[in-house]
Design a protein around this nucleic acid. Sequence first.
DNA 1: GTCTATAGTCGGATAGAC
DNA 2: GTCTATCCGACTATAGAC
Lengths: 228, 228
Amino acid sequence: MNVRPLTKTSNERSDATRRRLIDAGMELFGVNGFDATTTRALADAAGANLAAIPYHFGGKDGLYRAVAQAVIDGLNDQMGSFLDSVQREMDAGVGSPHQAMALIERLMADFAEVVLQRPEADNWVCFVMREQMQPTEAFSILYDSPIKRMRDLFSKLLSHVSGLEPDHVRIKLTGIELLGLVYVFRVARASTLREMGWQTINEAAYAEVRTVILESTRLILRGLQAKN
Amino acid sequence: MNVRPLTKTSNERSDATRRRLIDAGMELFGVNGFDATTTRALADAAGANLAAIPYHFGGKDGLYRAVAQAVIDGLNDQMGSFLDSVQREMDAGVGSPHQAMALIERLMADFAEVVLQRPEADNWVCFVMREQMQPTEAFSILYDSPIKRMRDLFSKLLSHVSGLEPDHVRIKLTGIELLGLVYVFRVARASTLREMGWQTINEAAYAEVRTVILESTRLILRGLQAKN
DNA sequence: GTCTATAGTCGGATAGAC
DNA sequence: GTCTATCCGACTATAGAC
């Protein structure tokens, strides 16, 4: 009775179907939103059967939650290493405001890369933004994300730069402001492309955007430091 | 044959119904998106009949387009006067970078007020953001908005500050960056509230946010000027 | 111009065969 | 575990009375 291989094969097929449905969900939910995305479209895009959605996820909502979790997992993959890296350097001790500023600039550059350049971003950014504007129960899953980790790092680093406490209102708001410097180019992408006369944010365009983001970051940081 | 009063009454009722449907559409489309908003919900919210939608607007899509136009009209009402005011001062001649910076700061403060404090903003901001992420044919209506006018004013003023041409890539991107300083608090509002431990952006909270926005604005402007 | 009733369409979930 | 066939509910738009 060789039941293992059968089970294993079964599980593998099952997992593959789950994964394909989640991939399809990330794209379709992100682009069109929950309601505009039909289970039929999801099943077609995943090459799966319609009934596989209620079967594997309990329904359309369940798939949606699974996608939210997958977004977090993906963000961890993409941001985990550089967040860890900065964390380690911080733990080793931040000697000077200058060093804190350098770490923030590194975080900003890496974050901009993930948000503006990685092709996967097209899917999850839309997904996250929808949740920001109209949070569903999946918002909690998304909130405890690497982005929160990043905000926390910002707070500590900005504290070193400014001399204020990490949980000072101004510090936290400035951290959000920094993220906004990156977000705006993704969220208002349609307007940005039109305004700049670009068809897409290609490499040259991204270089310009990145320069402006880092320049603005530096100016804000220097200003914070000067107030000491 | 006193036909005028009858016609007038008729038109008035008609216009009132149209207006109520547009108001309902601004709220419901903005919050829930096109697909999640049913004609029944629209009719109920407007206190109008279901059939009034196809009758007045040709269908759900027509109402959506009418809402987009109403968003622009509303923005013109709210931003027109301060945009005109700044425009007039610019036409009178911008003497110094310092004066240009003061005008930009005024624009930012007024814009922040409209985006973050006016209760009407809850409706149109979501509506506009949806169009940014997934533009429909209504995007063109929205693009030619007071916000474009504002970007253009920014370009000219930033040109005065920096000495660069108004259509220089860096200038235009910096203008977008400035808008992002305001947008982020509205778009990432859910995260902001959670991060700050606020229930709502009340007056005290807004004062803090406004301070940070204007502070960041000033720092970016000074940095631009310093490069001269 | 507005309302009621209804036609026609489509989406989500399930039952049951394989 | 997966697929087919089907049900039920909800939605948009229209026809026709008022």
